[in-house]
Design a protein around this nucleic acid. Structure first.
Lengths: 246, 246
DNA sequence: CGTACTCTTGACCATATTCAAGAGACGTGG
DNA sequence: CCACGTCTCTTGAATATGGTCAAGAGTACG
């Protein structure tokens, strides 16, 4: 459902979070002038579809989701997760049609931007281009760590990495406050992210459970020891630098 | 080895290749003003090192190479291949240190740019930012297809995909003219790209060989039937749009 | 109170890894 | 020019890792 802007950029709740870089006057003016409205999506809603076109770019304001690609026979690979403040649509500045799909995990609100007028802007507005390039570079780094994970980490390491990663991002972006990942994230999602079957994902989680690193409850996956998880995953954690917010 | 500029951008041999977008006056002026010299590297040379800093950005002018990440115990994942015209270094606009390493496959020449002055530029120069964002978006798309491949394609499909991909890119960028990948690409490289062991990569190549899709010779891997390879890989091929050249 | 999900487990099978050994090409130094 | 070491490719055998199938339990929802 598309609505008028209810959250004006000046009062964007994400700005209070120190994980995000403070708005420059310039960037605030840009964002404000570009925001076209809000997209309010229900749980599990399909926001963008592989093969379809989209005239919009989005920033996720509330909730979370994921991007994925599919093969014709239904095999699915989750490429990345979308957290509050994440900017999506860049990935297809080029093609007419999307190369991946996007779905929400739980209800979500996106800020809507217009793809065409965006392009015109970084011709003139100074710092904006740099911020967008920064975001693209960060996105690429995350994808590359993920690639290393699927290609070279064992199932156990991979699962540990993913859970630690999701917790860290969730906390940094204010999506979650405790140590629990929302129950909307199922083992099927983990499996499709890790390149494993659900059954094997479940058995791997059991090992993590036996070592008391995680607990899978009906309210979601509780991460009992993120530090050990990161160590088992051979992962050094997220970079701390604040993200630009667009 | 770093040398003075021997190939001025006005006479850049890559410009003759229709796979690259024609230089706008603006972009040519920019590139010309930014080029600081050339880096001439031997075969298998380490150009950038994970964990180290680099004050430079590069465009590959001649030859080819690859980017990779490593785990402490030596496991290695090749993230992507670098072909003529590819622009590297963007991936770390942010961090002080590189998050991946780069090596050449055979002798190579890179154009050198200065990271700091680059940043200043897209504040002022109009179209440049757009071109850089375009390149970043394309790079991300390729990584995502690769992620789908490792996560969800079978070893056979994956190998078919990679070989077809390398051939297509090699031909488009003028690196290769026939149907043969240079012999500097070993089965170990393929294995490290595909997330497989060398032994299994070899056995998978045997299947492709038995179906007469490829032939592995001392002069390199000959791709006998790229179309069938793409079909077996369930891959639709490279997008045709010309790449900006920086 | 049934139906649809998700999670869980066991048994069996497929896929991929490791180990080991040998063949062929290449380069180096005697 | 040949002997030797190194590197890559190749193959087989034993083993480990992960997938598929099947069935049941718990929960959520209408």
């Amino acid at each position: 459902m598309i609505t008028e802007t209810r959250v004006p950029c000046q009062q964007c709740p994400l700005r209070k979070n120190p994980s995000f870089a403070p708005f420059s006057k310039e960037l605030l003016a840009f964002t404000l002038s570009q925001k076209r409205g809000e997209l309010r999506a229900g749980s599990g809603a399909s926001v963008l579809q592989e093969g379809a076109g989209s005239p919009h770019l989005y920033t996720l304001l509330e909730g979370w989701g994921y991007r994925y690609k599919s093969l014709a026979d239904g095999r699915r690979q989750i490429l990345s997760y979308i957290f509050p403040g994440d900017f999506i649509g860049l990935q297809s500045t080029l093609a007419e049609t999307m190369e991946h799909s996007v779905r929400t995990l739980g209800p979500a609100v996106f800020c809507i931007f217009d793809r065409k007028s965006f392009r015109a802007i970084y011709r003139s507005a100074g710092d904006v281009a740099h911020q967008i390039i920064w975001l693209a570079a960060r996105e690429e780094q995350v994808l590359e760590e993920h690639l290393l994970s699927i290609g070279r980490r064992t199932a156990y390491e991979r699962t540990a990495y993913l859970l630690a990663f999701l917790l860290d991002r969730g906390k940094a972006t204010g999506l979650i406050s405790g140590d629990r990942l929302p129950a909307s994230l199922t083992q099927q999602h983990l499996a499709d992210t890790l390149g494993l079957s659900v059954v094997h994902t479940n058995k791997t989680l059991r090992k993590l459970r036996e070592r008391r690193l995680v607990a899978w409850t009906t309210e979601g996956c509780r991460i009992s020891d993120a530090a050990v998880l990161r160590r088992e995953a051979k992962w050094k954690g997220l970079p701390g630098a604040p993200r630009p917010l667009i």
